[in-house]
Simulated assay, not measured.
Amino acid sequence: MKHPLPLQALRAFVEVGQRGSIKAAAEALHVTSGAVSQQIRLLEERVGTPLFTRERQGLRLTEAGARVHPTLLAAFAQIASASEALEDLAGRQTLTVSTVATFAAAWLVPRLGRFNGRYPQIEVRVEATSALVDLRRDRVDVALRHGLGEYPGLQATRLMAPVLVPVASPALVAGQPPIATPADCLRYPLLHDTDRADWPLWLAAHGAPGDARAARGSAFEDDFLLIRAAEAGQGLALVPQLYAHAEIAAGRLVQVLDLPWPARFAYYLVTRPDAAARPAVQAFMAWIIDEAQADAPSSQT
């Protein structure tokens, strides 16, 4: 009787085939890239044929690999589903939540203790990433995403629409003429997110004349980096009020004008229709909607 193929190697094969990248598969499996490469080499040696071809854009399944990959992918999905059913039978339920790091740190994680206290039998695993996720492939039960609510084939519930406020380090504006109008912000360096659209839109929404300075200045991919740069006195930042609340309360930042402006995108609770039928997912969805509604007066105009 032949020895069965190693389960770890088969799992690595499925993840690499799905993602087209050793690095991406390693991140999904929470192991090193070297460990994934070793498992792929082991599997190819055991079956005696290449399963991937190396290309400039990444890895592509060979004809042999493509023939078996869909079956193995479905098999691991069934294993995951059966594992969830066994955990539910044991009274222990798991829930995987995907969101961006900034929202997790500033809003979700500080409140998560209340959910844990209400549902101690549900274990929540938070995955913080700004990358797109495939809820089924990545075995994510709930995603909290910032967007326009357009998620084809998924169930999306609007949670909140944060407002943007202009903030600065107290040291930056100390001893300077007061900022009395939106146009006064242009006397300072402006800090941006990566698309550099918020400052020009905010200034235009409040009647400031067009100015090339509105699109200039350092840009940051993450809102927390933007807030840290403002704290360091590098310029004025336009940031979601809910992210800067603690810094403003502690005096590390000041809101230079009381002119909140609705962000273009809202936060949505996104899940697969089949996942929404799970009791653990239903409990989490009901809880987070309640939390968002409780915050509505401070997070919306």
Rank of each mutant, 00 (worst) to 15 (best):
L242Y: 08
L253P: 03
D222C: 03
P273W: 13
L135A: 09
L203T: 06
D295M: 13
R41D: 11
A75S: 14
Q38F: 04
A82N: 13
L132C: 04
Q8S: 08
I289M: 12
L154K: 03
A296M: 14
L95G: 09
I248L: 14
A275P: 05
F115T: 12
Y119Q: 13
Q38E: 06
A275V: 06
R136L: 13
L135C: 11
A230M: 06
G147F: 02
V68A: 15
H146R: 06
Y243E: 07
D184T: 10
D258Q: 05
T32R: 09
L7R: 15
P70M: 00
E231W: 01
D134T: 12
T194K: 11
I227H: 07
S218G: 09
W199V: 14
P297T: 13
A35E: 12
L89W: 02
V31S: 07
R136I: 12
V133K: 10
V163F: 08
D222M: 07
V47A: 03
A249I: 08
E63G: 14
I40A: 07
L225V: 08
P170R: 09
L201W: 05
R136T: 15
E15Q: 14
L86P: 02
F220T: 03
T96M: 01
E150M: 10
H206L: 10
D193N: 12
L5P: 05
R252I: 04
G233R: 02
P209L: 06
W202S: 00
L190H: 15
L10D: 04
R125H: 12
P273N: 15
L43D: 04
P297Q: 06
A104E: 11
E247Q: 13
I288W: 14
I22S: 03
G147H: 04
T99R: 00
Q300K: 07
A283S: 15
P240W: 00
L159R: 09
W107F: 05
V254T: 15
S169K: 00
E44F: 04
L238H: 10
L10M: 12
V270L: 08
T129N: 05
G233A: 06
E55G: 04
H30A: 15
A208I: 02
E55H: 07
I179H: 06
R145G: 06
Q255H: 01
A104M: 02
P170C: 08
Q241P: 08
D134V: 09
L164A: 10
P178W: 03
P50A: 12
L73H: 05
R228A: 11
G17I: 01
G235V: 14
R145W: 07
A205P: 00
G65I: 02
D198I: 01
R118C: 01
A294P: 01
Q241K: 12
L225G: 15
G233C: 10
Q282I: 00
E221Y: 02
V167D: 06
G207T: 07
V31E: 11
L5H: 08
W199R: 15
K2M: 07
A277F: 03
A174Q: 14
P260Y: 04
A82Q: 10
A104R: 13
G147I: 01
L59P: 10
A244G: 03
G147L: 03
L10T: 03
I248Y: 00
V16T: 07
S98C: 10
L86V: 01
E15F: 09
G20P: 06
R11A: 10
Q255C: 01
L172W: 05
L86E: 11
D193A: 12
A237P: 11
A244C: 14
L186Q: 11
W202R: 03
A250L: 07
A24Y: 00
